[in-house]
Amino acid sequence: MPFTNLISPQELARLATPEWRIFDCRFDLAAPRSGRLAYDQGHLPGAFFLDLEEDLSSPPNGLNGRHPLPDPQFLADKLGSLGVGAETQVVAYDASGGMFAARLWWLLRWLGHDKVAVLNGGLPAWTRLGQPLDAIEPSAVAGHFPLQLQNGMKVDAEYVLGHLEHPGMTLIDARSPDRFRGENETLDPVGGHIPGAINRFFKDNLEADGCFKQASELQEEFGKLIKGGDAHNVVLQCGSGVTACHNLLAMEAAGLDGARLYAGSWSEWCADPARPIATGTD
């Protein structure tokens, strides 16, 4: 049975085979090279490294957000070169509670590959279990990754603009509450949020140990946000389309399938002064 949302360190240690592909997605927005440096110092045995900005995003142009989605064929070719094929079980991890690993999880599903899971608790949970790390960068026999793009998984700025205040869209913002209110904004040139959005800080999906809350608890919490509505009407966003994937993963783990991603998120939205913004808790 494939893993399609979360996998525990115990399950990974017990079940992983050389045919699986494990990806280290560690990153720091304030120090972009630190993830690669940390990988070189020690990573899960057999893990390959993928960089948020070089591999999991395309170059920003000032209007398309800070972390635009990568070119699908580019990412498919990259994954294929690292041995990911149609039947490969993929596991993504980081050291930030899944903050960056969830981006790879969503991207693979967008490319049509459902056999992908995030390591619950990430590297800290792995090491707490007493599992080893190594500093050897593995090699892989290149294969073919069959790209089957699932465009129904995302929406664009025009869709969001056209559905503001529309009962058919519930917009959830994954940023911290202060940034949602327009306070302490250090990453984007404009503070605030998209009018009508609800704030669900992605870290609220986690327990104190960095592992995801139980599915029943996540289901209850997200159920309150969407007021018992259809998850297919939910659009997830954040600052640049990264931590929104964490909320998507949490919803999926809770059995609330079908929510979509606004990948450009706040950094794209606020780049156009014609688009409305809100501040505070409104």
Rank of each mutant, 00 (worst) to 15 (best):
M1N: 12
T4I: 06
L6Y: 02
L6K: 01
P9N: 10
P9M: 05
Q10P: 10
E11D: 15
W20Q: 13
F27S: 04
D28K: 03
A31T: 12
G35A: 07
Q41R: 15
P45R: 05
P45Q: 07
A47I: 07
F48G: 13
E54W: 12
E54F: 06
E54I: 13
G62N: 04
L69G: 02
P72Y: 02
G85D: 06
G85N: 08
A86G: 05
E87S: 08
E87K: 12
T88Q: 14
V90I: 03
Y93I: 01
D94A: 08
G97M: 00
R103V: 05
W105T: 13
L107Q: 14
W110A: 01
D114V: 12
D114F: 12
K115Y: 14
A117N: 03
A117W: 07
L119H: 10
L119T: 15
G121Y: 01
P124K: 01
W126F: 04
G130H: 10
P132W: 11
E137A: 12
G143I: 06
H144T: 15
H144N: 13
P146H: 08
G152E: 09
K154S: 10
E158I: 07
L161K: 09
H163M: 08
H166P: 15
G168H: 11
G168K: 14
R179S: 09
F180I: 03
N184I: 06
L187Q: 11
G191C: 09
G192Y: 02
P195K: 01
A197I: 00
N199V: 09
F201N: 15
K203P: 03
A208M: 05
D209W: 08
E217Y: 12
Q219K: 15
E220Y: 09
E221P: 04
G223D: 08
I226W: 00
G228R: 02
G229P: 09
C238R: 02
C238D: 01
C238N: 01
G239N: 02
G239S: 03
S240T: 14
V242A: 00
T243P: 11
A244E: 03
A244H: 01
A250V: 02
A253S: 13
D257T: 09
R260E: 04
Y262G: 14
Y262L: 07
G264N: 04
G264E: 06
S265C: 10
S267E: 11
S267R: 07
W269M: 04
A274E: 14
A274M: 12
I277Q: 02
I277T: 06
T281H: 14
